[in-house]
């Protein structure tokens, strides 16, 4: 990154604007299409998907249920009906394949809001702020089933901004706009990536799935890295990059195995040297994908 450049400037010069934004555009498209599918019914009378992200029915046959909500029902001491269990199983399998926090970056309605806050934060040069431990979300996640068990109700769903926003968009917001604004301001002024990166227990839940999910981003051509730090600058969970990108000496990587990687693909976009690519968690090296003359003499392990 040259001084004065914004992250990704080199990628735009090398690859063109569109290629340097393709995963971002694909994510925004995904978020819009999913929201559009939910809204097509109430707005246009085209009923492809009914319900909301808590539980939905697609084309009258495919049930999808949020596993975290189902977990809360179970914790509250009730056995949900088969439809919800089936729907949750389908969702679990899907995210185990495509990467747990794909939910966060490709589906969740809060993501565009926090991305916007982060963008504005960079533009305004706001630095510092409160420091939340990124363990907070895990503690909150642990508290959720506990609350359901103790109170007998889905207590978290009284305050959960994620389900609140989607339900609001599809069924009517009420005062939920205030929650959106609060999260935006939290991320803008209080702490960088405070909500999605530190606090949100829904993200933590999908992060657990991501820890064992199949599709991952890998720094497959990490030997090309010129340390421009663009990927660190754009990554919403930048702590996940270092082991994969710089861990060759410790025998780590090149695949980002941390569940907190959201598979957003932004690092792929902004890297001018095409270090990153989507791959599977079983990839051990880049050779099978595209042989690259690395210039070093160590024999490379062939991907398993």
């Amino acid at each position: 990154m040259k001084p004065g450049d914004r992250p990704g400037a080199e990628a735009i010069r090398r690859k063109g604007w569109f290629v340097a934004h393709r995963w971002l555009l694909a994510r925004r498209l995904s978020q819009l299409v999913i929201l559009g599918l939910f809204l097509a019914g109430p707005w246009l009378g085209i009923w492809i998907v009914k319900g909301n992200l808590a539980s939905s029915l697609t084309l009258e046959v495919l049930p999808l249920t949020d596993p975290l909500l189902l977990l809360q029902v179970l914790a509250s001491g009730q056995m949900p009906a088969a439809t919800a269990v089936t729907g949750a199983a389908i969702v679990l399998v899907f995210y185990l394949l495509v990467g747990g926090r794909v939910y966060c970056s490709w589906v969740c309605p809060v993501n565009p809001i926090t991305d916007a806050a982060e963008w504005l934060r960079c533009r305004l040069g706001i630095k510092g702020g409160a420091r939340f431990s990124d363990q907070t979300r895990n503690w909150l996640l642990g508290a959720i089933p506990l609350l359901a068990a103790v109170s007998g109700g889905l207590a978290w769903e009284l305050v959960n901004p994620v389900s609140m926003v989607y339900r609001g968009l599809v069924f009517g917001m009420g005062l939920a706009w205030g929650v959106l604004v609060a999260i935006f301001l939290l991320d803008l002024f209080v702490g960088r990536r405070a909500w999605c990166g530190h606090l949100c227990p829904v993200g933590a839940f999908y992060g657990l799935l991501g820890g064992v999910a199949l599709v991952r981003v890998g720094a497959l051509r990490r030997e090309r890295c010129d340390d421009c730090l663009d990927c660190f600058a754009v990554c919403p969970e930048h702590q996940v990059i270092k082991p994969a990108l710089k861990g060759a000496d410790q025998g780590l990587g090149p695949v980002i195995l941390s569940g907190h990687c959201t598979n957003c693909g932004r690092c792929i976009d902004v890297c001018g040297r095409e270090v990153f690519a989507f791959t599977t968690r079983f990839t051990r090296s880049a050779h099978k994908i595209r042989p690259v003359n690395t210039g070093d003499n160590h024999p490379q392990e062939v991907s398993s």
Binding site: G51, N52, Q72, V73, S163, R167
Partner: peptide, 8 residues
Amino acid sequence: GACIRCGL
């Protein structure tokens, strides 16, 4: 405890 607030 049983309703997941999906609106179906």
